[in-house]
Design a protein around this nucleic acid. Sequence first.
DNA 1: ACCTGAACACCGTTCAAGT
DNA 2: ACCTGAACACCGTTCAAGT
Lengths: 238, 238
Amino acid sequence: MRSSSAPAGSDTRSRAATGRQAITAERVIDAAVRLTVEHGLEGWTLRRLAAELGAYPAVVYHHVGDRDAVVCAVLDRVVGGLRVPDPGLPWQEWFVELLSELRVVLRRHPGTARWMVLFGPSVQAATELLDRGVRMLLDAGFGEESTLAYHLLAATACQFVTMEDDRDGSLAERLDNTEEYAAYRDRSDLPGMAAHGRTMHRLLTEPGLLDAYFTHLYDYAVRRCLDGLTTRLADIRG
Amino acid sequence: MRSSSAPAGSDTRSRAATGRQAITAERVIDAAVRLTVEHGLEGWTLRRLAAELGAYPAVVYHHVGDRDAVVCAVLDRVVGGLRVPDPGLPWQEWFVELLSELRVVLRRHPGTARWMVLFGPSVQAATELLDRGVRMLLDAGFGEESTLAYHLLAATACQFVTMEDDRDGSLAERLDNTEEYAAYRDRSDLPGMAAHGRTMHRLLTEPGLLDAYFTHLYDYAVRRCLDGLTTRLADIRG
DNA sequence: ACCTGAACACCGTTCAAGT
DNA sequence: ACCTGAACACCGTTCAAGT
């Protein structure tokens, strides 16, 4: 019987001699993206990724590097899948379009949004997007503040997607406070908490409503952000 | 020589017989808060927490529960340290005051902001805060939208603090792209990227400027959010 | 150069046994 | 009830050895 640490289909002969595909960096990243789509970025381990390739963990190190290096490569793939909206659009519409597509792409790869907040600007594939976005704001009249405004919009979008990812993940499953919210609904001594209780109770009991709520919250956040920047632009222009 | 798995100062006799303090849930949480202030929520393990108490990991389970239970107890302590701003303030000022104090408290306990985004409303100590906040918005005229608006403000604040925590943590240290940004500064074919490169290069080379930038970004995010909600309020009323 | 196979130093969690 | 001490099933990472 084989040792349990041996990868599935392993063989003492070389990969070529046994008809197994040679492992390349690209194939490692392919598998990592596949696992991310299926289980999220925190839902697979380096050992699992290696097993997916029918190889040992050290093989991943040899071709790509440590776990962070694999994650960065996945980010690059994800961002690479984004299209740049039509530069002819007004700046607000341009961002609405970009950020609603960003949400779809990031949500399809759970866990990537969290990394994007910090590493987004360093991802090679994001260069064109960043350039176009900052340029939209420069042209709109934000001047020196353009990079700050861009950072605000991009960070807000990624952060709200991260919240959704976390909610689906293991973080949230341990907590069902439907009963708790129900108890607050009639507390006339805590009118704010009562309103919150009514809203949350409905969201948690009517099926499918919670997903719709998070979509709504995302759009609401993006819109308020753009409205706030519009107010700011009027102040800058004097 | 003692087994390396035995906690420091361990003794086969009972804790009382050896003059060691009995372990209580409160003392476990005290230690967890202390470790969080010092190393962040992700900077300590259950084994380390147990060692801090001179006990075995199973002791933490016995008095508090698993790691998530300890974390929730820490959150409760952190939120409990917040004061509610003067209800006589205009709603915008009320939130500016609340959220700037929130940032200070969360930043003093790195890693807690990430949990607050999802679990904040369930933390017992946050009930009064939530009630007062939603009530401010109800009184301002947000009506049915008050809980949504509150959620937007609280989530935005916690998320930007999370970004700062992540930047200080191990996530960001592996990436110094000062040189990369420098290279983009003169790319007249990528004017947006050039502007971004100039801003980032300055932030990364002039000492202390980066901290100031994140403080500025946080205030900018809170202000834009409030401005956006003010615009929205005019729409609701109009 | 590429891969094997095992080791190292960790985790969170569980549990029978002692007092 | 409270604590001990060890075990279980994992991690990411490293490395000498093979081909």
